[in-house]
Design a protein around this nucleic acid. Structure first.
Lengths: 346, 346
DNA sequence: AGAAAATATGCAAGCGCTTACATTTCTCCC
DNA sequence: GGGAGAAATGTAAGCGCTTGCATATTTTCT
């Protein structure tokens, strides 16, 4: 009953409060904040003081609603749970931050449906532009992006012909060169541990690159010892163990990425196999772990940081209305370390 | 002049468009989307179809403005550039997703000022609740959180006395037990490679735990061979090399985290030092790499996934108005592998 | 069958901000 | 000093959505 009954709800100050405190209209306050040059020195001082005193900060929803822009970009990566996307994303975000835009990240768990949800969520939340990984996604996702005219860039792949601009490297070509090196060393029985290729065009491209190299060398792709598996060190180890049961067994095992290769290496040791004496192993990505494993992993180096940075630049340009430029190609080169050598004599 | 002059601007469908298409009111559409059980089966079908056909997605700004909640939580981690926070964050996000909330991630690069900006950005963007790492941040950050009454949880630490609830483990205690084991094995000259302790309470706590253990064993903390360094494998390697110049040199090198330890191990090999015969090394975190390095790293296992999941639950509860519960304590236990043994005879 | 209760839907008032346009105030010049 | 034009400020109409309340419509019960 007492008036003090109403709890002193910690009210967030609004534009109107500021206006009242400074005895001006809300329009003036808004102008002070967004285009100060259009307001007289005196008023501005008065208003800014009120802003400070009240601890005012604009309400994003209202602002977005009225102004229709947010200075926020979104990125959707398949997973945060391993290092593959981390470095590139960090570089991406650093570049954005330098340009006053905030990055929002979501992850899709390699699930196109979930990715579609995340795209919607990010766009709904006001993302002005989007970074996506690879081309594999639902038709609805594309339709939605199309309809909203959201600037977006596809990274981790380079596909000049695709309708969307990409910033990345040629997965197929890169794996092909690696395989060519392996074959050039004399290996004939090849094993391949691939990440799941469903819903993952990078994995498919890499696989195709391997097949290309085999064919060019007169090898029959169907004779490849192939294992497809999810994405963890343990999975890589299991696949490798499995591969070593084949008879005759492969003399070289290429891996779709470094995580899988790390598992393979670990398993090789467990099996008492010496790498590369008994069997060669190669990776892809050149993550930190490639240097750490024993022996250090021969792998394909991917310029993650450049990729992130350039993707950010491309997106920034697009958002600013610069005519959409072409896809950007980066080189993925072989990083020679110690897990690849000629096959055992035998 | 031709009527076709007006470009067919790609208009984003609004609630009203959907309502019109389904011949119902906007209120009904809104209800269909937000509390479907309050709408009849028949209407719902009709509305959902219109939604699909038009490719409708709610305007976040408007929604946030009207509903004053967003079903979005934010997380600010020091860096995405390595695996430390990845697994916990992934689990955090999975749990949130199960509850219909979207996660927005930002990173602060271990910079309190930048973190403050990110907090503001996330809150402005409508984050209903926040996950933060550690207690170290600017007074303004706390004041802001306070004023806005944003539910928030601090993870990666457990500090029951702190004003904010935490979900994590006791860094100090965990490092203390590890150090106690090391000392128990007979080591007397200890080396420690720490992450930078400024602005990082986890690093400070771990260091203090080590000192605690030394004192309890009658060792003088000031005699610790200490190196403080940024956060990468190369930094760990450099610090280790440096440590090995000390004379007499430490017989065991504890590391503030696994990344640093991986660098140390790598450097040990380069130096021709056998671990653990010549020198013991320990890590902290039990990241994937701990199993991968050679020899496998003895380290402190941190229950990352549980931590992420429980933090999500706590935050969800708080958001839903459940009275703020107490901090949640998780155990961080030693994971014995092969890099820790008794000191060399000598 | 008729009334009460339960369920489904519509109406309309905002949420806090931006901005086109209208109005007031200042400057300056003849 | 008066008036034109520029500069500063105010007015008010939305932006797209949610939600309390009022109004149908259906179900249930007697």
């Amino acid at each position: 009953m007492a008036p003090s009954d109403t709890q002193p709800e910690p009210t967030v100050p609004t534009l109107e409060d500021v206006a009242k405190a400074a005895s001006v209209s809300t329009a003036t306050v808004s102008r002070c904040l967004n285009s100060p040059e259009r307001v007289s020195e005196k008023t501005r001082t008065k208003v800014m003081e009120a802003v400070r005193k009240l601890g005012y900060a604009p309400n994003f929803g209202a602002q977005a609603l009225a102004a229709k822009r947010t200075n926020t970009f979104g990125a959707i990566i398949p997973t945060m749970d391993n290092a593959i996307f981390a470095r590139g994303l960090q570089a991406f975000q650093e570049e954005l931050h330098r340009n006053g835009v905030t990055l929002l990240v979501a992850s899709s768990s390699y699930d196109p449906q979930l990715e579609e949800d995340q795209i919607r969520a990010l766009v709904a939340r006001g993302a002005d532009a989007l970074l996506l990984i690879g081309h594999e996604r639902t038709a609805q996702s594309y339709a939605f992006l199309e309809q909203r005219q959201i600037p977006c860039v596809v990274a981790w792949v380079y596909t000049p012909d695709a309708p969307r601009i990409s910033v990345g490297f040629d997965n197929r070509q890169a794996m092909k060169s690696m395989a060519a090196e392996v074959i050039g060393l004399g290996h004939r029985r090849l094993g391949y541990i691939s990440a799941n290729r469903g819903d993952n065009d990078r994995a498919r491209e890499r696989f195709m690159g391997l097949c290309d190299a085999m064919r060019e060398a007169g090898l029959e792709p169907s004779e490849l010892h192939l294992r497809e598996t999810p994405y963890s060190i343990a999975d890589g180890a299991a696949a490798f163990a499995d591969l070593m049961e084949d008879s005759p067994r492969p003399t070289a095992v290429l891996c779709g990425n470094d995580v899988l290769a790390a598992g393979a290496l670990q398993q090789a040791r467990k099996l008492g196999l010496s790498v590369p004496r008994d069997v060669s192993v190669t990776g892809f990505d050149d993550l930190d772990i490639a240097e750490i494993v024993t022996p250090p992993l021969t792998t394909v180096h991917v310029p993650h940081r450049d990729m992130g940075r350039l993707a950010a630049k491309a997106l920034l340009d697009m958002r600013n209305g610069t005519p959409p430029q072409a896809s950007i190609h980066l080189d993925a080169t072989i990083r020679w370390r110690e897990t690849l050598a000629a096959p055992p004599e035998n």
